[in-house]
């Protein structure tokens, strides 16, 4: 499988404290990879290492199937990034900020107007960035990250600190990008709802460890409701359900029905009653993505 980003056993220590521990991140081409984790989980540290801003304590980083340590310049030519708080030169205008970067990137000047248009800053292009709101600075940061038409865009909490309308604006902006250009995007956030609305793949980190990495659909599967049955002789009861072709799981003396339409539940209960089992409780378990995220990140255990 071809990965745009692949880290192997990536770790970073600050003195005695480990900020990132044995991280294996895998991002395929064209994905919007949501890098999710509570504050202090190690997202920014990971992203800094991906961009070569900080050296890893151990482990390897491959981007575009090239070793970051060996081909940093060639890799960075094809990457756009926005790390943590927006970076800008306060004494320059929005246009001049991009011009200072453009000189290094060597793209045509028309590209500045294009990216300003994308983030809708054309009207304030000639105003000093000093006076910009956080949202405008954030958008300028995104414009800067798009200057070189990157194949991989890395955005670290791009909606952090924005008001709801700003958040929606940035979200829509990010969602339209891969569709238009086939770009691969790595976007970090501490908010699941944020990632849920944009990402196609999710990687969840907590305390420096990757505890989940899969498609957003797989994550949503966990969120689906389940019907729980508490019955007498539960293991036997479960086997007889399976024997009758009803899909179910058995866990800690509780039967979990994975198919939970009214008809299916009724059929399962009918079967159990018919076979002489006593039914003590029928419960519905609802887990929101948020619950799952919370559970994962507090328990630090892979589900």
């Amino acid at each position: 499988m071809e990965y745009v980003v692949q880290t192997t056993n990536l770790s970073k220590r600050f003195g005695k404290e480990s900020a990132v521990i044995g991280l294996d991140m895998k991002i395929r081409k064209g994905e919007i990879y949501g890098f999710l984790g509570p504050n202090g989980a190690g997202k920014t540290t990971t992203i800094r290492m991906l961009l070569g801003l900080m050296k890893a304590s151990s482990g390897t980083i491959q981007i575009f199937e090239k070793d970051l340590n060996k081909e940093k310049i060639n890799i960075l030519k094809r990457v756009g990034s926005l790390v943590e708080n927006p970076s800008y030169y306060p004494h320059l205008t929005a246009y001049e900020n991009l011009e200072a970067l453009r000189k290094i990137l060597g793209v045509p000047k028309t590209r500045i107007h294009e990216v300003l248009e994308i983030v809708r800053l054309t009207e304030v292009a000639n105003k000093k960035v000093k006076g910009f709101s956080l949202g405008m600075k954030q958008r300028l940061g995104i414009a800067a990250s798009l200057l070189n038409s990157p194949e991989l865009l890395i955005l670290d909490e791009p909606t952090n600190g924005l008001d709801p309308s700003g958040i929606i604006e940035i979200r829509n902006l990010i969602k339209q990008l891969p569709a238009e250009t086939g770009m691969t995007i790595l976007i970090s956030s501490h908010l699941l709802t944020e990632i849920d609305q944009m990402a196609t793949t999710v990687g969840i980190v907590t305390k420096g460890k990757m505890i989940y990495q899969d498609s957003i659909e797989s994550l949503r599967m966990y969120a689906q409701q389940k019907v729980l049955l508490k019955v007498s002789d539960s293991e036997q009861a479960w086997r007889s359900l399976l024997g009758n072709g009803i899909k179910a799981d058995w866990e800690d003396g509780i039967i979990l029905l994975s198919e939970h339409s009214d008809g299916k539940v009724a059929k399962a209960i009918h079967t159990l009653v018919h076979e002489g089992y006593s039914i003590y409780r029928v419960e519905e378990e609802k887990r929101s993505l948020e619950d799952i995220f919370l559970q994962m990140t507090t328990r630090e255990k892979v589900i």
Binding site: G52, I73, N74, L76, V83, N85, I104, L105
Partner: peptide, 18 residues
């Protein structure tokens, strides 16, 4: 100074420069 002020170093050094 302008690199120290508002995250300029990380923006500059994430560009393809040594």
């Amino acid at each position: 100074r302008y690199e120290h002020q508002a995250g300029g170093w990380k923006q500059l050094l994430a560009l393809p420069v040594t």
